[in-house]
Design a protein around this nucleic acid. Structure first.
Length: 116
DNA sequence: ACATTGACGGAAA
DNA sequence: ATTTCCGCCAATG
């Protein structure tokens, strides 16, 4: 646990977490979608970084497994506890995943700009 | 302070 | 259609 120093308000990360938490069950979104939703000079990369920087304790609350890249590919599965947990959770949500790829991605896609 | 990398995305070739 | 490059900002070495 690194010494947490309140440097700034991390609006960036907080926003990301909030949006991710708001993802309905059985739905997924992309980093770019979140980035656009936040609107600022935020790039999809930062969203990914935000996930990596998820504060301890928030991990169980932020369903990061529902956030995938635009291709619907589970790019961040290697960052999971067991990497296989990602698709396992997605399947648990009713999303079928084959080879780290979400099936019917467009169907499960949840865009905060459109649906939120 | 400089260089490299990173859970991405979109434009260009 | 695919491959390559650039940008976005922050963190790390």
């Amino acid at each position: 646990m690194p010494k947490e120093k309140i440097k700034k308000e991390y609006t960036f990360f907080e926003n990301v977490y909030e949006v991710v938490k708001l993802i309905p069950k059985g739905r997924v979104t992309s980093y770019g979608a979140i980035a656009r939703y936040l609107g600022t000079g935020m790039s999809a990369r930062m969203v990914g970084w935000a996930m990596n920087a998820v504060p301890a304790g928030t991990r169980g609350k932020v369903p990061a497994h529902r956030v995938v890249n635009r291709q619907g590919l589970l790019t961040g599965k290697h960052h999971f506890n067991p990497p296989s947990a990602m698709e396992a959770r997605l399947k648990k949500d009713g999303i079928n995943v084959v080879k780290d790829k979400i099936q019917h991605f467009d169907q499960h896609f949840w865009d905060p700009n459109t649906e939120l």
